[in-house]
Every structure is written in structure tokens, then in C-alpha cells.
Nucleic acid binder design. Structure first.
Length: 268
DNA sequence: CGAATCACCTGATCGC
DNA sequence: TGCGATCAGGTGATTC
């Protein structure tokens, strides 16, 4: 579900709601999600310093532990109606001012753990550069394509060890903008085209953040609103519809086990 | 080693 | 209307 733009939008919303607030009582309503949930009593009485993002992970800093949270496919943060938890509200943060926040995750592919304040955690150790940082320089995709030359280019840009934050939607959209077929072996994409692809990844992610992410089904901002970028999709979910650039029908096929949408004329 | 497949879990949707 | 099959935005373990 949530890729970098959605996680960044949730980060901003959580920051607005939580920064400076004191957690009166934090509790998990089940023992685990994708991984075990630690004893959240360590958060009781702690003040939230801020909310950061690394890749698709949220890091919620307090004057005690730092929370490491991944939204998985269906994770959402929201303020429960009437303050009482609903179906799939797995973690409840009751704040000293009377508000409460819930982490809801129907499929339980999410993560709710602690990590070191410096970000030390197994899940964070092998992540590639942030796509919107200077570390995502020209050579990153060239090196990755050389290393994974037989893999489809779409699988390479979705590999979180290569560059973080790109999931199935933004992989499809950035490949369309770069004019590259998602199934093309990475080793057969010329260096200049990889540089163009890196630029399009940055552009599409930045545009999507500006629109509050993409809402297909589950994803919501913390304030409950949908994102808007789904209205800007060129190919994702548009199989059979005419390409906005050339009119050719958009196609869909599984690549690397994921549905992949592309224009067979614009993308080679 | 790299690349492909499977497994985790619930819910929405589709075809019959 | 009912029901089983299929699929969904992610990630990590396993298999080839």
C-alpha cells in the first residue's frame, strides 16, 4: 500500500498531531503484527519529540524509546471515533491532553517496534539512498543495473537496497515517464536512460507528496482525507484504457510477481 | 551469488 | 444472493 509519498504524508500528519505531546498511556491490543510488538509501557509518560521517515519506515522520537513503525500494505494512523478502539486498531496511544491515536492494520503486514534513536535496527541497515536526497546521485542506478543485469528494470528500482521508497505504483509511473518498458532487463538499459529514470523517480515522488499521496483503497492521511495523486496516474490501474500520450491501450502483466502496467508504444 | 517464488493476513471484487 | 477463487500499495525467507 503505502509507498514513500504516502508514508511521508502520514509522517507530516503525525508530526502535527504528536510533536510536543505527552503519551499518558500506550498499549498494544495484540502481541504481534508482522513482528512482535514490544512492551509499550515504556512509552507511558514520555513526550514525543518529533516524527521522522527513513524509506517507508516512520521513526517516532520520544524522550524515551524511539518507535519504528512500518505501515505494511494496510497500515493507517487515525483518531478513533469517541476515543474507543475499533476493528484492527492494534496500538492505542492515549495522550495527556485527552486525545488518542490508533495504529490500524487489517492485514497486519506492518511493524511496530522500538529502535535506537540513531536509527539502529536490522530493518534499516541494508536500505539504499533516499531518492529525494543528494545520495541518490547519477551513478546509483547505473551501478545497480550492472549488478542486477538480468533482472527486470522494474524489480531493480523496487529493490529497497538500491533506492528506497519506490513501490509498485511509482515504479510503473516513473518507468512510463522515462519511456522504459518495465520488463526490460536492467543490463540492457543504457546509462543515459538510467539517469533519466532516476530523474523521473525523483519527480514523480515529489509530485505525489505534494498531492498527499495516492489513495487506491485503504490509504488515508492521518486526518482521514484521501490522497489525490491517483488522479494523475498515467498507467497504474489503467489497463485497456488509451495512453494519454499516444492512445495505445495500456497493458498489464505480472513482472516479478507484481501487476505491471505500461504503454507498449511509449515504453521500449 | 542473483533471480524467482512463496508466505505472511484480511477484505474487496469477480466469475459462476 | 451465495460462494470459492483471485488479487491488493510490502517485505523477508526460501528455493532454484
Amino acid at each position: 500500500m503505502p509507498e514513500l509519498p504516502e508514508v511521508e504524508t502520514v509522517r507530516a500528519g503525525l508530526e502535527r498531531l504528536l510533536a510536543g505531546s505527552v503519551i499518558r498511556r500506550a498499549r498494544a491490543r495484540r502481541a504481534d503484527l508482522r513482528t512482535g510488538i514490544p512492551d509499550l509501557r515504556r512509552l507511558d509518560g514520555r513526550r514525543v519529540a518529533g516524527v521522522r521517515r527513513r524509506a517507508k519506515y516512520l521513526l517516532i522520537d520520544t524522550d524515551g524509546p524511539t518507535i519504528l513503525n512500518h505501515l505494511g500494505m494496510t497500515g493507517r494512523w487515525h483518531e478513533p471515533a469517541g476515543g474507543s478502539p475499533g476493528l484492527h486498531d492494534h496500538v492505542i496511544l492515549e495522550l495527556a491532553d485527552g486525545r488518542s491515536l490508533a495504529f490500524n492494520d487489517a492485514r497486519r503486514f506492518g511493524v511496530f517496534e522500538f529502535c535506537r534513536a540513531d536509527g539502529g535496527h536490522d530493518a534499516l541497515d541494508r536500505l539504499g539512498p533516499e531518492p529525494l536526497s543528494a545520495a541518490f546521485a547519477g551513478g546509483v542506478l547505473r551501478a545497480a543495473a550492472a549488478r542486477h543485469r538480468r533482472a527486470p528494470i522494474k524489480a531493480v528500482i523496487m529493490d529497497q537496497a538500491v533506492v528506497v521508497g519506490v513501490g509498485n505504483i511509482y515504479a510503473a509511473e516513473s518507468l512510463f515517464r522515462a519511456g522504459i518498458s518495465p520488463a526490460l532487463a536492467a543490463g540492457r538499459v543504457r546509462g543515459e536512460r538510467l539517469d533519466r529514470l532516476a530523474a523521473e523517480i525523483r519527480a514523480v515522488l515529489a509530485e505525489a507528496i505534494a498531492k498527499g499521496g495516492s489513495t487506491i483503497d485503504d490509504y488515508r492521511q492521518v486526518n482521514g482525507l484521501s490522497g489525490l495523486f491517483q488522479n494523475s496516474f498515467a498507467v497504474y490501474g489503467r489497463d485497456g484504457q488509451p495512453c494519454s500520450a499516444c492512445g495505445t491501450a495500456i497493458r498489464v502483466r505480472a513482472i516479478g510477481g507484481r501487476s505491471s502496467f505500461w504503454c507498449p508504444r511509449c515504453q521500449r
